[in-house]
Amino acid sequence: MKAELEQIRREAEQVLACVSNLQDLSNFRVEYLGKKGKLTQVLRGMGTLPLEERPKIGQLANEIRAYLEEEIEKRKKVLEEEALSQRLRDEVIDVTMPGRRHYRGKLHPLNIVLNEIKDIFLGMGFEIAEGPEVEWDYYNFEALNIPKNHPARDTQDTFYITENILLRTHTSPTQIRVMERQKPPIKIIVPGRVYRSDAVDATHSPIFHQVEGLVIDKNITMCDLKGVLDVFAKEMFGPQTKTQFRPHHFPFTEPSAEMDVSCTTCGGKGCRVCSYTGWIEILGAGMVHPKVLQYGGIDPEQYSGFAFGMGLDRITNLKYGIDDIRLLFENDIRFLEQF
């Protein structure tokens, strides 16, 4: 019987060496170690053995079983490893083929840029105010020191709804509305849509967008105006950006200024975009006119402030190198998906 067992071991060793897949391995286990397996068959014959031999044979049989179990496990690991490698080889795909498309939309470029502007000013302690697009003549002109028949009204060709109601020509009326409802300190920006009776071309649109700013507090100076706007320019167009302030005139600020930034295309060397001046005008600003403070119910002897206004469409176009304002309103998907 011992010889029989040794025979099984040898035979099993030979067979196992030839097992080449997991199924065969599983069959092998059944064939040798299963309930009707060869080893079990042999052990069934134990009853015929003399009593004193039984433990020895039993021990040998267990040794062989344990040995075979171990060998099977080893073999199994090898085969599994091989099978996995094979699967991985079979599953090679062309990773350069296009991905399955997931549709995600995008914000309009005007609002992408507006969000940037908002973030810059929120970071400097500004709040965001809003005002109506259909506005009283009073807020749009009178209270901003532009009385009826003032020549400054020419530069803002106005759409009228009635004699006293119009489509706001700038976001500045919100300055007065905020002053009326809020005591200083005031630090706001006012983004919004504005209207001027301009025929459409590459640089003009009867509807466009502005971002207004207003700061009123005690001891606000022109240095603060310059400082805040310089920070804005550097945040918006990059830390290398330079600013330059030129005297200008607006009825609602005095002194008034226009701010240029070093050309965003050539960096100031001079190119087509900046008409070879190295500078690009991006906003108007100034110290709030004392009369405007009075219209807003704020004492100009106690408080001072500055205001600024920029064209969002223009800044967006500058930032992305868009050369025609009409593209912003056409909403061609091939345009919108670029931002």
């Binding site: 400097m124 709040e127 300190p185 630090k187 022109m222 603060d224 400082g227």
Partner: peptide, 16 residues
């Protein structure tokens, strides 16, 4: 004219 940032009351910049 030099550039400065406002002194005085601190305001909180936030969205409503």
């Amino acid at each position: 004219i030099p550039m400065t940032l406002m002194e005085g009351t601190v305001t909180r910049g936030r969205k409503t």
